[in-house]
Simulated assay, not measured.
Amino acid sequence: MTVTADQAIANAARLLDRAEIELTNLPLMERLDELAASWLQLAAMLLERERV
Rank of each mutant, 00 (worst) to 15 (best):
M1N: 07
T2N: 11
T2G: 08
V3Q: 13
T4V: 12
T4S: 15
A5S: 13
D6C: 00
D6L: 10
D6R: 07
Q7P: 03
Q7R: 06
A8M: 06
I9Q: 12
I9G: 00
I9D: 09
A10E: 11
A10W: 00
A10N: 05
A10Q: 07
N11T: 12
N11W: 06
A12C: 03
A12E: 01
A13V: 13
R14I: 07
L15H: 01
L15R: 08
L15N: 00
L16F: 02
L16I: 03
D17N: 15
D17G: 14
D17K: 07
R18N: 08
R18Y: 08
A19M: 06
E20F: 10
E20T: 13
E20C: 05
E20I: 01
E20Q: 15
E20H: 13
I21C: 02
I21E: 12
I21W: 07
E22V: 04
E22R: 04
L23M: 05
N25H: 12
N25Q: 04
L26P: 01
P27T: 07
L28E: 11
L28A: 10
L28H: 06
M29G: 02
M29V: 02
E30M: 11
E30D: 08
E30N: 15
R31Y: 02
R31V: 01
R31L: 12
L32Y: 09
L32C: 05
L32N: 02
L32I: 07
D33I: 11
D33Q: 12
E34Q: 14
E34S: 15
E34I: 09
E34H: 10
E34R: 15
E34G: 09
L35C: 03
A36L: 09
A36F: 02
A37P: 00
A37I: 06
A37H: 06
A37L: 09
S38K: 08
S38G: 15
S38W: 06
L40E: 12
L40K: 11
L40N: 08
Q41Y: 04
Q41L: 10
Q41P: 00
L42F: 06
L42H: 07
L42K: 05
A43P: 04
A43C: 03
A44P: 01
A44V: 06
A44D: 13
A44E: 15
M45C: 05
M45G: 12
L46M: 09
L46K: 04
L46A: 02
L46Q: 06
L47F: 03
E48S: 15
R49S: 10
E50W: 02
E50H: 09
E50K: 10
R51C: 11
R51Q: 15
